[in-house]
């Protein structure tokens, strides 16, 4: 994190060269906020506690930057999972000020609060501190068969590839942006109480493959989702779409998927 506001050596713009004195006059724009991090190890602790750290931030500082500063300089034991730092890997989902968000994709300045509280995501089993287990989500994801199902293959086909028009791709491309971060499942009101529900992540992916015109596994998938804790557990509260950091809009995919079961789509 840049605390002073000055560019690192070697990064000055040409016009600034030789005017170091002028640069030093620029006031740092850092503000300070309190970062509250939930600490809880189910193996050792009885109840979660919150660690508080004063953290200075700039306009561009993300919540993940702040957590890592606290981890690096204050408490190495803070458990946090992250990888790409650019909303690509889906590792750093957590509750930030009560709502599920990606820590790397949430700027502190956007939160408009002097206190930022980070907790593990709801509706997932806790491993430690901010880290939750994704096993159930991944197994549900596998259950809906997230791959193209068809008898022939691109290798055996005479054309060597299955051509699609841009219109064919538009039908599902939105839903293929899913990074499996689990924010949608965390926000879903049905998931809050029903742990056997497939969830918005799995259902949106079921639509992604059914809407793909290369796929022939529609009937198989519809059978999987048309059960007691399947697609009908969605009541279109829309919370999943509201928190999705990639614009997947799972609520839309689920409603479109229902069209197949109600006979509006073929």
């Amino acid at each position: 994190m840049t605390k002073g506001g000055a560019l690192p050596k070697g990064f000055e713009s040409p016009s600034d060269l030789g005017s170091q004195e002028k640069y030093e006059e620029v006031k740092p724009s850092s503000k300070t906020m309190t970062l509250r991090i939930s600490k809880f190890n189910p193996d050792k602790d009885h109840a979660p506690t919150f660690l508080e750290f004063p953290v200075s931030y700039e306009k561009w500082t993300t919540v993940l930057d702040a957590i890592l500063e606290a981890k690096n300089y204050h408490d190495h034991s803070i458990g946090v999972r992250y990888s790409c730092r650019q909303a690509m890997c889906g590792s750093c989902g957590m509750n930030i000020n009560g709502k599920p968000r990606l820590a790397c994709f949430t700027k502190i300045s956007e939160l408009d609060s002097d206190v930022v509280t980070v907790e593990p995501m709801n509706n997932f089993p806790l491993i430690r501190d901010l880290v939750v287990g994704f096993e159930r989500m991944f197994s549900t994801h596998k259950r809906i068969k997230p791959y193209i199902i068809r008898e022939d293959s691109e290798i055996s086909s005479g054309t060597k590839e299955f051509l699609q028009t841009p219109e064919d791709v538009e039908k599902y491309i939105q839903f293929s942006s899913c990074i499996k971060c689990g924010l949608c499942n965390s926000a879903c009101p049905t998931m809050a109480a029903d742990s056997t529900f497939i969830g918005p992540q799995g259902l949106a992916q079921a639509y992604r493959y059914i809407a793909d015109n290369r796929d022939q596994g529609k009937d198989e998938r519809l059978k999987i989702i048309d059960e007691r804790h399947g697609i009908w557990g969605c009541h279109f509260a829309g919370s999943c779409s509201q928190v999705c950091p990639k614009g997947v809009d799972p609520a839309m995919g689920i409603q479109l998927l229902r069209g197949y079961l109600l006979g509006y789509r073929k």
Binding site: D226, G230, L261
Partner: peptide
């Protein structure tokens, strides 16, 4: 109910 009927049929009803 749902063991003898598919959930989509119940929802249509």
């Amino acid at each position: 109910m749902s063991s003898i009927m598919r959930e989509s049929h119940i929802m249509k009803i």
